Amino acid sequence: MKTLTRTFSRTFQDRNLGFITQACTRQTTSRVGFLLLDNFSLPCFSQALDVLVTANLISPGAIRVQTFSHDHTEVMSDLGIPIRPDTPLTEVRLSELDLMVICGGLRVARTLPHWLTLLLKKLSKLPVALGGLWNGAWYLGAAGLLDGYRCAIHPEQRTALAERTPYATVSHDSLVLDRDRITSATPKGAFEMMIGWLSCGASRQLADAVLDTLDGNQSKPRRTHKPQQPTLSKALREVIALMEANLEEPLTPAQLSRVVNLSHRQIQRLFKEQLDTTPQKYYFQLRITEARRLIQNSDASIFEVSIACGFVSCTHFSRSYSAFFGHPPSREVRYEL
């Protein structure tokens, strides 16, 4: 019997990027280094690192992360948690990097030691992008490496950097990606900065997958790098929220209409105009997407997953799953818990 093949609408194609395979992404490895300064911002570092670690979970080997300190000794973060770097600062390894990020922080000394000046100028002559977290832009600017660039820095040091580097444009934005200089001023900016870099420096598809995996609110527009995503109306967001809250026992069209006080035809028009699909297709794709998420990230049985996602027949669930993903749920990859 011929296997039925089904495709996701644009909205769910994006959402299911969280489960792409390594074969779908670029096979070369991108190398990112983090230079940790004393009292560096651990929240900024963690947000940036989370993006890269997740990228490797989705596509093993896509990113190689290395951490450095001045003398390869333990560095104390701003939260009092020490971090031990894994790589010594050697010219051979530095030349292999695609990006070096200077990790600053509120209490990092605002001086540019001679060793850091030499290091940054050496890096600027290599095909290596330079980045800064929190006030990391200060050190790039003090070394003369931000002339002609836009940059982001924490508000505490914004004025000081503008005076120190008159040929740089110090932005009020929380992150700035300007050619081979990428800087952020906040933990949230660090997260978005690395998503943006991943999109350009590794794979746009992989960046989308990481964002969709880490972002819990997947129905909101992607301001970071998906400007084409439409802004959903309040009424449509309410309908979608109802669907997401009722997967095990899906609501009927009449029930949806009654709760949001809209006619079935009005709801259909909202989905067509804003998502180019029907409510029925959206609801079904939402359930099958959540089913895959549960299989991959829990120890629930296939039967339990099918019930939790509103499928009364295991056979129907298996056929639908195969139609969308090309294999039955029993062959889905399960991540270690």
Rank of each mutant, 00 (worst) to 15 (best):
F40P: 07
T21F: 04
T25N: 08
Q66K: 12
V32E: 07
T67S: 09
N39P: 00
A55N: 00
D14Y: 15
R26V: 11
N39V: 07
Q27C: 06
Q27S: 15
V65I: 14
Q27Y: 09
V75W: 00
G18C: 11
S59G: 01
F40C: 04
S69D: 03
P88I: 08
D71W: 10
P82R: 06
S59P: 07
C24A: 15
L49T: 12
T28R: 15
L17E: 12
R84F: 13
L36A: 02
I20W: 04
D50L: 14
F45C: 01
T87Y: 04
N56F: 07
F19L: 06
D38G: 02
G80W: 10
V65G: 03
F40A: 00
E74D: 13
S69W: 01
N16I: 10
A62C: 10
D86C: 11
T25A: 13
M76K: 12
Q27T: 14
N16C: 14
F45W: 09
S69N: 00
F68K: 03
L35K: 04
L52I: 07
L42F: 03
T73I: 11
T87L: 06
T73E: 12
F68I: 03
G80S: 12
T28F: 13
A62G: 09
D78P: 03
F34N: 00
D86P: 00
I58N: 02
I20S: 06
T28N: 15
F19Q: 05
Q27R: 14
G33V: 04
C44H: 06
T54I: 07
D78E: 08
D38Y: 01
F68W: 04
T54N: 05
D71H: 14
P43L: 05
P82E: 05
T29G: 07
T73L: 13
Q66L: 12
T21A: 11
L35T: 06
D50K: 10
S41I: 05
S69I: 02
G18H: 08
L57H: 14
D71R: 14
T29V: 10
G18E: 11
D50P: 00
S69T: 07
L57F: 13
P88Q: 09
G33H: 02
F45N: 03
T21H: 03
D78F: 01
I63K: 07
T21R: 09
L42G: 01
N39Q: 13
R64S: 13
D38M: 03
N56R: 08
F19R: 10
V32N: 00
P88F: 05
L52W: 08
H70G: 03
L36H: 04
L79K: 13
C44G: 07
H70M: 07
